[in-house]
Design a protein around this nucleic acid. Sequence first.
DNA 1: TTGTAGGCGTTATCAC
DNA 2: GTGATAACGCCTACAA
Lengths: 332, 332
Amino acid sequence: MTTIYDIARLSGVSKSTVSRVLNNHPYVSKDAKEKVASAIKKLHYTPNSRAVQFRLQMTKNIGIIAPMLDHPYFSRLISALSSECMLRGYKPVVYQTFFQEEREKEVYTKLIHKELDAVIITTSLFSEAYINELTASQTVVACNEDYEGTYFDVFSLDEEGIIYEATTSLLKQGLSNLVFCADILDNALQQSRLKGFIRAHEQYSITYRESYIYNHISTIEDGVQLGNSLFSGTLMCDGIVAGSDFVAAGLLKSARKHCIHVPKDVSIIGFDNHQISTITAPELSTICNHIQEMITDVFDRLVHRLNGGDTPYEKKVYTGTLIIRESCVNKK
Amino acid sequence: MTTIYDIARLSGVSKSTVSRVLNNHPYVSKDAKEKVASAIKKLHYTPNSRAVQFRLQMTKNIGIIAPMLDHPYFSRLISALSSECMLRGYKPVVYQTFFQEEREKEVYTKLIHKELDAVIITTSLFSEAYINELTASQTVVACNEDYEGTYFDVFSLDEEGIIYEATTSLLKQGLSNLVFCADILDNALQQSRLKGFIRAHEQYSITYRESYIYNHISTIEDGVQLGNSLFSGTLMCDGIVAGSDFVAAGLLKSARKHCIHVPKDVSIIGFDNHQISTITAPELSTICNHIQEMITDVFDRLVHRLNGGDTPYEKKVYTGTLIIRESCVNKK
DNA sequence: TTGTAGGCGTTATCAC
DNA sequence: GTGATAACGCCTACAA
């Protein structure tokens, strides 16, 4: 490994001067600059970033915590976060936790040891207070899930509100036996959605069935399976809040197989406004979250903090949009 | 930041002893061990991994280069690679290059400076020789794309062979006006596929149309658009090798809109065997690549190299499987 | 404008 | 068993 010392010798100056050239400090003679530059080229020298970071105790890396990548929503969210991160001149480093506490903690450790300048939490297994402890109050931003916003900035989607709206739109049409599916994430975010579902029912004084609340339904295949059990025998439900477009697509497929008509027999609403929602027959009603807007705000705040800003922690919620397509009854 | 020095003072021993305890060396008295342990606990000490890495010149991190994450195939591949990586006791770090040379080079720089123990290349913008130069012959493995295998190990999918097989299966049925779609990646991998497409035509002495080779068709929406142009007016093609299940799904949707019957009027074959291929109507014929098998081999080799093994570089090719479903004519 | 020296946190090599 | 001490590659006062 070639070091500044090597190129110092080759160019006949001291390590300091080399370092100065490297970091283009003022007060370096053109002569020195050139000699160093050519030595660098000749030796194919590149600074050892580990040493620099060790010395400076800082990097331009931002860690992004994701539970999984093989997921239509997260792969999109993470991709967009990475993209924006680069735009802002930082280097995104994606850590996939697979819902394992150990993996998540590892990232916080890196933050503490300044391997990372900041961390963006997309999904966490821990409470806000505990995260704060784990990160020793370093720069952290939550982007996706809902936290209090007392220990760090929180940017999240109004899951409860939009599911409330979606559920209401179904109940308003006279449906009264709704199924609710939660995605693979058995966490706060899903709880919010469920709360919205329940609140809508209370609003309309309609009782929902506990047994119609399904958890861990997240893939197309899960949707198909669920549909198979829901649609065989006597049809009991008349609407499904599917939790994801993939699940909804699976449900549609199963409905077709069982000759259940959507939306005449059953209405279905997906989530994410994934492209898949436009190619099903019937096309899927779904929910669109305004990810890009949220991400822009996340980085505005992040960059601000990284530059020493310390405005009070903020919590911002983004309201989704309900997109009604063919998979829902519409008596109008 | 608390350091070993702090805990050395608190426990009344020297830095060396603390270090020994940390790395559980032999020849440390139980007494010392306990004192150090309690001091560590009291001060919430965690080793500064940056310093350790700087000192040891190694990490347990393996970089994974991906062009994009928001993609049905890559998100699955990367997810599986990460997963296997953890299983083997290494820490996967995912870098998304967005097809930018700079971003890819950054990763190689990290490798050179031992921020990474090895790099897994999923898609590269560079030639094998140039990558070798960029990485100073450090541990690199290609997993996905096809390289010669002269400078590092290569594990890739037989894209040409399987597309040849797929194309052949269509031509055998008497189809003769086939469309070929390339994904967003205008690279070697896509070229291989195209070669397979062409070779099949040559085999059957059927001429293909240059104008029927489409590039940069990668999303559902792209598929819909392409379908709209293909299926309006007089139908000229009778088969489509779509390049991805998403594209194929988009094509199906467009076909339905234009009252083009699949497979009677047009046969369509997707790629990836993504879940989506089972929920379309008709169900999609597609191609399944044996990713997990490949990944296992990748890490076998990687771990072997990381432990000092230096068997000659190897190139291994995995043959895909053609899955025929409803979207293809079958005259049998 | 440039060089010298000190130190970032850790581990390894010596002596003792 | 244990403790100094010297690196690892780099940056930055401070002095010249």
